Simulated assay, not measured.
Amino acid sequence: MTGLKLSHLVTALIAVLLGYTSSAAIIFQAIDAVGASPAEATSWMLALGLGTGLSCLILSLRYRMPILTAWSTPGAALLAVGLQGMSLPEATGAFLFCAALLTLTGITGWFERVSHLIPEALGSALLAGILFRFGLEIFASMEEDLPMVAVMCVTYLVARRALPRYAIPLVLVAGCAMAWGTGAFELSGTGGIDWTMARPVFTWPEFTLTGLIGVGLPLYIVTMSSQNVPGVVTLRAAGYRVPVSASISVTGLISLLMAPFGGFAFNLAAITAAICAGPEADEDPTGRYKAAALAGVFYSVVGLMGGAIIGLFLVAPQALIATIAGLALLNTIGSSLTAAMDRPDQREAALVTFMATVSGVGFLGIGAPLWALVFGGATLLVLRWRRPAAI
């Protein structure tokens, strides 16, 4: 892989930083729920990092697209509640059941056929709604650390005028320098970190009806509706003809491989993929896959280090992470909103999709992204329906 740029490196780092800091705490809750030992907990983090890294590398290098993958964060939230009172072997059996369903979904190709039915305007509105809260976090972070956020925003504006290609790298440098200078990095708790390499711990699965139906099936549904649907929409909105079936087959097979070690489910990423698929990664769309491939390398390295590097990720001030993520996604949010509102005949349906996504509505175990498409699609069908002409 030749022709690497600074923007590829920085974008990949931002994506991995956001991926870990936004979900590490939830994963730890899921690990506690199943009563895993420290060695087993480290194995979980190893499996999640390596699984994500390998699938990123395989897909981005094979298809030359910024196909970023992730573990299922909504799935981790479900596990934090659903695994209470369940043994680790039972949980492993549920993970394998979910992985088998994901693999079958990719092999049969039914999900790819369904995904082509999503109108472009609704897909763009869904993406804008998913990313919208990251833009809002820039301003919410001002209450936490106004000087640092102000320095980062001013740096962004100046760099966009003078050095647009390096705007996000310069913002990251300015934010880190400001956080370091003001002592915002919480380094006091890192003295006890174990820097040894993580080791996998194999768990023999135990298949029970409670585990398969109560955890495995909901994990599959949440992963497909809240992760894979937005992941497909994100790449299509960026102009890529994503190989949906192949991507889900790869993440499903990786899930099967990593499940006995704690890798509960892998899927297409949406938010971190939007970072690597945007112009901040590379002005040339054909070169953005390199940022995704580098993210795969970084995920693998972090996984091999177990909880050590993850602990370092967690000491970064939240205002720094929220601001850099929001600024990196501004361009994508704007272009998605423009595409969503571009067609007058789909504008109201797109607006319904956008608002439903932003609301975070979820019931029947299904998250906002899928319900937003249902509501938006129903709106579009009703507004387009015409009575048959009288004979």
Rank of each mutant, 00 (worst) to 15 (best):
T210M: 07
T208R: 08
G106E: 05
V151H: 04
I26K: 03
C176H: 04
I31F: 03
I324D: 02
A273M: 03
L101A: 13
F207G: 05
F266E: 02
L268A: 06
A36N: 06
A238K: 05
L78E: 05
L131R: 02
F185V: 07
P369D: 01
A179K: 04
T338H: 12
A30G: 02
A339L: 13
G326S: 10
I324R: 01
M142E: 00
G192K: 08
G214Y: 02
L256S: 09
A125F: 02
G262F: 05
P164W: 08
E90N: 07
T332W: 08
L256T: 09
G53L: 03
R133S: 13
I31H: 05
A174T: 08
G49I: 10
T203F: 06
P38N: 12
L54I: 14
C153S: 14
G135I: 03
K5E: 14
G19S: 10
R161F: 12
R343E: 15
T69I: 02
A368L: 01
E137A: 13
G181V: 10
T182W: 05
R161Q: 15
F132I: 00
T52C: 14
T190N: 08
A274M: 11
G362I: 00
G239M: 10
L57G: 03
G189Q: 06
W371T: 00
G75W: 01
T182S: 14
V229H: 10
T234I: 08
R347G: 05
I254M: 14
T69S: 08
L329K: 09
L79A: 11
S60F: 03
D145G: 00
V149D: 00
L268H: 06
G365P: 07
L18N: 09
S124E: 05
H8W: 13
T223W: 04
I31V: 15
L50A: 15
I254R: 08
V173W: 03
S141W: 01
T251F: 04
F375I: 00
S115N: 12
H116G: 09
M197E: 09
A259G: 10
F139L: 12
A198R: 08
D145Y: 04
P66Q: 06
I391W: 06
P230D: 07
V244Q: 02
